[in-house]
Amino acid sequence: MGKFSKQSTVSAAFDMIFSQLRTMALVLKHTFTKADTVEYPEQKPYLAPRYRGRIVLTRDPDGEERCVACNLCAAACPVDCIALQQTVDDDGRKRADFFRINFSRCIFCGFCEEACPTYAIQLTPDIELAEYDRQNLVYEKEHLLINGVGKYHDYSFYRHSGIAVDINGERKAKGDAQQEKPPIDIKGLMP
């Protein structure tokens, strides 16, 4: 009501009335605009590739699991709905022994994806997660792991990392990774 002290009361009152009427006119105009919503189950809405829906674990271009079970996603998760355990396999790779997301608690904030250093965990534009039984919302690794690279096509963590692992059945030994020199012969006499 502070407005009234500046302008004359009458013109302010007219302003106010005009404002309300204009509002109504604007809303009325929308009688003729197309609805933004769609008839959902029959007609699927467009969801952008970066839409934050169901979480998946992706594989690297070689078809190996990207997840190295570093626990960063679980640490970043604000609702603590991720639990996992690391295991080291004979091929030198670290994998999740189990990887569990409790979707009944997930808030799809995408922090896990942001925290993931290997692009393993990704949110997908799939939103159809409803279940009749809450227990079915607990996804284990076999439910999460997909056979694809997700949004990042080329990245392979183990080709950058310095640890020795098998890639495509061949040993990537020390010095074989990208941007690595061959291992130093410590018994060599060269200066």
């Binding site: 929308h30 009688t31 933004d36 919503t37």
Partner: peptide, 8 residues
Amino acid sequence: IGIWQDRL
């Protein structure tokens, strides 16, 4: 209300 709010 739906129509005016661009819904169905």
